[in-house]
Design a protein around this nucleic acid. Structure first.
Length: 897
RNA sequence: AGGGGGUUAGCUCAGUUGGUAGAGCGCCACCCUUACAAGGUGGAUGUCGCAGGUUCGAGCCCUGUACCCCCUACCA
């Protein structure tokens, strides 16, 4: 026979003793593995691949916890679950990290040469790339780790090349001279995502541009005077009366010999500054647009490293800041600098290097988005892809409307190299999946591969199918593509979600996922975004160390509601750590009560016999049914916080506070009574279901507990998730009527405790009480549960009788639905009567307020005419009861005074 | 500037079919009652931002308004 040495369990739950061991056990048993082919319904999720360079932050913790909760829930619900893990090479981020490291060693990454540098990054990846994976495991992520994919893995690379070549052949990829964000620190194009605007206190300079014909001058204001060297026009508003005569004329560009036209464009704000804007198409995005409209020449004055080039004439070779000083000095010398005002403005900085981002004209590769966006819009409009919450679909569609071509080339070394070779002989391009040995066009062997690599998001966009073996046709894709749900924060809807939809439709002819669940971001206690640089970032690994992964997960889940941001609170985390401890101790106590419990031969399928069940047994089963229904509904609609709260209340307030207390008198009996046996069986079943319900939320502690239960299966992680449907037979043992009756008992106990508390009767003092039921049913209920009432309310005697002496007694009317009981506690000799007088007066006042508002409502003719019958009925009943209670209390009060 | 969100107990937040408000933490009182002091029992606390409207009835629906936050784009 099994022995349950529950008392040998520590009285505090220690996650450190449990989590690593449990996780290893799950892994060793292969529970995370998906079946490539199965008769079970597939459920697949692609993990947004974190950067290999990174360490887990709370945002990941939130994102992963939501996914893991869904995945565990579905796994337990019988689905064939694939949670596909991966890590991202994160081109820019990783390259920047390694370059920084090299710099510390006094080496220059660029000088090392491409091959040497890339080798170095791979070394770095081998050394540190597993760290984030290990951290994910600490959190409990139940990914199918054998499928762990890195975005630079061979098969992914093949997919990337195939997509590039296909898009190129379809004319959807082209090379063009465009203005892009240029990081002078990285000497590469970067995406909008990698530009961070910082407020800079600078100056605004007013510069005079004289008309070429000598008929006057315009005053131009700029924050970047050095860029005037690249000006190719000056613009005014077409309707600006002040400048009508200037339009079409030419001005002399200061410090140069060039003359540039005055053009009219509605972009110019008449009210701002002088109403005249210098136009530098090669160094400003707005100016670039104007330049396109007016077919202005684009004059690039910068080198890749941020110094001025030959187009800047005498200023070439200087860095922007130095050039600015020189330009200003020369302007001043020529008396062209009218004035200088302080001015605060937002300046783009590279998030990786901190250097200023320059709009920079350069040759880059682009994906033509227009034709690709249309179908990607349609699938969202038609509901083929559902956003949850729905409102994000609007954001998505809006972005699709204003979508621009996607710059996919980066002047980096770390990443997927662009599969394009230029022929030195005929200058034509060879674009190929396999590395070519000669030019496609002239067969020259003199070909040179494009130096650039692809934007990291390019490979990310293919992730849902590149991780499943595409372009080969695989069983995996058959089974799991499209994936079921994508879970992500809103900040990458454009960078990632939209592009996955686009690529999925283009290359798989189907959407990559059915649902996109968008959650909020985590902020600190002040509501600020968490970031390492601000120093307000909490380290989830440390939080797990201190509180356990389950507590952290529960904290996060308890706040996931309707896609809103959540603030991290250490107090809250502590609260959920306490909750885990409560669960632990509730179990410890239960197991003690089950010491000599002999599991029935049928195991879990051997259910208790209804006729043997006590009121608390039927009550707890009924409550369990309510929770199973709620959690089922809430998980289906992604209301994680409500599900978590519902379970929290069930475990703590229903199970521990009341059910376990009710079982105490039963288990206190030294005899093996039938009642005791029945309760043991119920308790064993309830425990089993409780941990099953909680498992997706708090996987470690629940598995640990499960393994110690007398009634259990092989492993919790693959046991069935309880629902009202699949748990019907057990739930049928519960009873709503009995639940109501037991609620009356609870109210009676609470009333006695209230009288005790308010009258300062010491907890150790046993008192007498008389319970005066209003009808036979109430009488019977009280009789049945008398022992519990006496134990839980600390009574030395308990009389159940409708009549008796009320002198010097505390009285508290109690009612639950149609059941009514007056709780009477003789106070003579126990307490100062004053306290009881105060207590009763307070209760009367409260009831009177209720009666007043109810009376008013009941006398309102339109209410009576319009309100539904049951609402009126309930109001009437309540009014009657409250009045009755007042009279009971008043007579009690009269006897005290 | 455009788009979105928030404003509910001292703090952090729940509140999906409109029927007179909930949790956790904190606070007060009493308790080491042999599962748990990371605990137990009892208690106090809200004109649900403000002003209107619809309704018999509004935290919830509508209009306006104030303040805060986020996102996108920024004025040269």
């Amino acid at each position: 026979m099994l022995r349950y040495l529950s008392m040998e369990l520590p009285d505090r739950y220690n996650p450190k003793d449990v989590e690593g061991r449990i996780y290893q056990w799950w892994m060793s048993r292969g529970y995370f593995k998906a079946e490539e082919k199965s008769t079970r319904v597939p459920y697949s999720v692609i993990l947004p691949p974190p950067n290999v360079t990174g360490s887990l932050h709370l945002g990941h913790a939130l994102n992963h916890t939501i996914q893991d909760t869904l995945v565990r829930w579905k796994r337990m619900s019988g689905f064939n679950v694939l949670w596909m893990p991966g890590t991202d090479h994160a081109g820019i981020a990783t390259q920047a990290v390694v370059e920084r490291e090299l710099k510390k060693e006094g080496k220059n990454g660029r000088a090392m040469g491409r091959e040497e540098f890339v080798k170095r990054v791979w070394q770095w990846k081998e050394q540190y790339g597993d760290r984030i994976v290990e951290q994910m495991k600490r959190l409990g992520d139940s990914c199918d780790w054998e499928r762990l994919t890195f975005t630079l893995d061979e098969d992914v690379s093949l997919a990337v090349r195939k997509v590039f070549v296909d898009l190129y052949n379809k004319n959807l990829i082209y090379k063009g001279l465009r203005l892009i964000n240029w990081s002078t620190g990285l000497e590469s194009a970067i995406s909008d995502l990698e530009v961070e605007f910082r407020e800079i206190k600078g100056s605004i300079y007013h510069i005079r541009y004289e008309l070429a014909d000598g008929s006057g001058a315009v005053e131009v204001a700029t924050t970047r005077p050095e860029t005037l060297l690249g000006d190719t026009a000056v613009a005014v508003h077409p309707d600006d009366e002040r400048y009508q005569s200037f339009i079409g004329k030419k001005v002399k560009l200061p410090l140069t010999s060039r003359q540039i036209p005055v053009i009219a464009d509605a972009y110019v704000e008449r009210e701002f500054g002088s109403g005249v804007v210098k136009i530098t198409p090669a160094h400003d995005f707005n100016d670039y647009a104007i330049g396109q409209r007016h077919k202005l020449p684009m004059l690039n004055i910068l080198n890749k490293d941020g110094t001025l080039n030959a187009n800047a004439g005498a200023y070439s070779g200087n860095k922007v800041q130095e050039a600015r000083k020189l330009v200003l000095a020369d302007l001043e010398a020529q008396n062209l600098l009218v004035k200088t005002e302080p001015h605060t403005h937002q300046v783009g900085h590279c998030t990786r290097t901190g250097s200023v981002v320059e709009p920079f004209l350069s040759e880059q590769w682009f994906v033509k988005m227009g034709p690709l966006a249309t179908p990607a819009k349609r699938v969202v409009e038609s509901g083929t892809v559902i956003f949850e919450p729905e409102s994000w679909a609007k954001t998505y569609l809006h972005w699709m409307d204003i979508i621009q071509d996607w710059c996919i080339s980066r002047q980096l070394w770390w990443g997927h190299r662009i599969p394009v070779w230029t022929c030195l002989a005929c200058k034509k391009l060879t674009v190929s999946i396999e590395d070519p040995t000669q030019c496609q066009h002239c067969a020259s062997k003199e070909i040179q591969q494009d130096e650039d690599v692809l934007d990291t998001w390019f490979s990310s966009a293919l992730w849902p199918f590149s991780t499943m073996g595409w372009p080969a046709g695989t069983e995996l894709q058959q089974t799991f593509y499209p994936t079921t749900i994508l879970v992500t924060a809103f900040d990458i809807i454009f960078f990632w979600v939209a592009r996955m939809i686009i690529m999925g439709l283009e290359f798989k002819q189907d959407v990559p996922f059915r649902t996109v669940f968008i959650h909020g971001v985590i902020r600190d206690a002040q509501g600020k975004k968490m970031s390492k640089s601000v120093g307000n970032a909490e380290d989830p690994v440390q939080l797990i160390e201190d509180n356990g992964a389950d507590a952290l997960r529960y904290t996060l889940l308890s706040q996931v509601a309707s896609g809103r941001d959540l603030k991290f609170s250490a107090q809250r985390l502590e609260g959920y750590r306490n909750f885990m401890n409560k669960l632990w101790n509730g179990t410890r106590f239960s197991l003690n009560s089950l010491r000599n419990f002999v599991p029935p031969a049928g195991g879990l399928s051997a259910l208790p016999v209804k006729s043997e069940l006590s009121d608390p047994d039927q009550w707890i089963i009924f409550k369990l049914g309510v929770v199973e229904r709620e959690v089922d509904e809430m998980l289906k609609s992604y209301r994680f916080s409500e599900a978590a709260n519902s379970l929290y209340a069930f475990v703590w307030n229903t199970f521990c506070d009341w059910y376990l207390e009710f079982t105490k008198p039963i288990f206190a009996s030294p005899h093996e009574t039938p009642e005791k046996k029945a309760t043991q069986l119920v308790l064993a079943h309830i425990l089993n279901r409780t941990v099953r319900l909680l498992h997706p939320f708090a996987p470690f502690i629940t598995e640990e507990i499960y393994q110690k239960l007398p009634l259990k299966g092989e492993a919790l992680i693959v046991d069935t998730y309880p629902t009202p449907k699949n748990d019907k037979a057990f739930l049928a043992l519960g009873s709503e009527d009995v639940a109501t009756e037991l609620d009356l008992v609870r109210e009676v106990i609470t009333a006695i405790r209230n009288i005790r508390g308010e009258n300062r009767i010491k907890p150790g003092v046993r008192i007498a009480a008389r319970l005066s039921p209003m009808d036979d049913r109430a009488q019977k209920i009280l009789g049945t549960n008398k022992a519990s009432i006496m134990t839980m309310a600390k009574l030395e005697s308990c009389e159940i009788s409708a009549s008796g002496d009320l002198a010097k007694c505390a009285v508290q009317p109690v009612h639950v639905k149609t059941l009514n009981v007056d709780v009477i506690v003789p106070l003579a000799g126990l307490v100062d009567i004053e306290e009881e007088v105060k207590r009763i007066r307070k209760a009367i006042e409260k009831l009177q307020r209720e009666v007043a508002s109810l009376t008013q409502r009941m006398s309102d003719k339109s209410f009576m005419a319009n309100a539904p019958e049951d609402v009126v009925e309930q109001g009437k009943r309540q009014l009657e009861e409250s009045r009755g209670q007042i009279s009971t209390l008043e007579s009690a009060l009269a006897r005290l005074l």
